[in-house]
Design a protein around this nucleic acid. Structure first.
Length: 181
DNA sequence: ACGATGATGAAC
DNA sequence: TTCATCATCGTA
């Protein structure tokens, strides 16, 4: 299993965003830039799920910006915020149900805007499918993440939304201590 | 610790 | 028309 490199397809992303967010930890985000292909392990994610989620862009329905969230699982949703930053989301679940996972960190580049800057992810990828053709995809390289390595916390930057603020929908990969594996 | 950045959508 | 937003960086 050490050398497996399975490109994750629709069957992986056509599931609830919480499941996908948790299982994306330890998977590899792969980006092809010209002749350069970079693969970085995903270390931090957040789930956004359905119309009722008051933290989600989709909670008041479809708008031109959030339209990709209504596409099928595996669609890329990239949006621009704070006048400078691109945010990378991966759409989850079936078409017409708005759900996605925000990729907040990969090894080496922690922070949703930092990783998009490093991997040159911007509007050009919005609404495209994760695939080798689009130049952005996710691989399972056989790394198993235990529950003990998965820290759950509230989502970042969503104040005063009651239960939607306190839900533990952020997942962080914790490096196991030496001798603890 | 604070201001600049400046798209998008909601509130007023 | 004004304000807050799923941040980050440079400057003080």
């Amino acid at each position: 299993m050490r050398h497996m490199r399975k490109v994750l397809g629709r069957e992986f992303f056509d599931r609830p965003a919480l499941t996908v967010a948790r299982e994306l930890l330890g998977k590899y985000l792969v980006r092809k830039m010209d002749e350069d292909t970079v693969a970085l392990m995903i270390t931090e994610t957040e789930a956004y799920f359905g119309f009722q989620d008051k933290g989600s862009h989709a909670h008041r329905g479809r708008t031109p910006r959030n339209a990709p969230m209504f596409e099928q699982g595996g669609t890329i949703y990239v949006y621009f915020t704070y006048g400078m930053h691109w945010m990378l989301n991966i759409v989850c679940g079936r078409k017409d149900f708005p759900a996605a996972v925000l990729v907040r960190g990969v090894e080496e580049y922690i922070g949703p805007a930092r990783l998009t800057k490093a991997l040159r992810i911007n509007k050009k990828l919005n609404a495209k499918p994760l695939s080798k053709k689009s130049g952005l995809w996710v691989e399972d390289r056989g790394i198993i993440i235990s529950p003990a390595q998965t820290k759950k916390t509230p989502r970042v930057g969503i104040p005063n939304r009651g239960e939607w603020t306190s839900r533990l929908w952020r997942f962080v990969l914790v490096k196991p201590k030496k001798g603890n594996l």
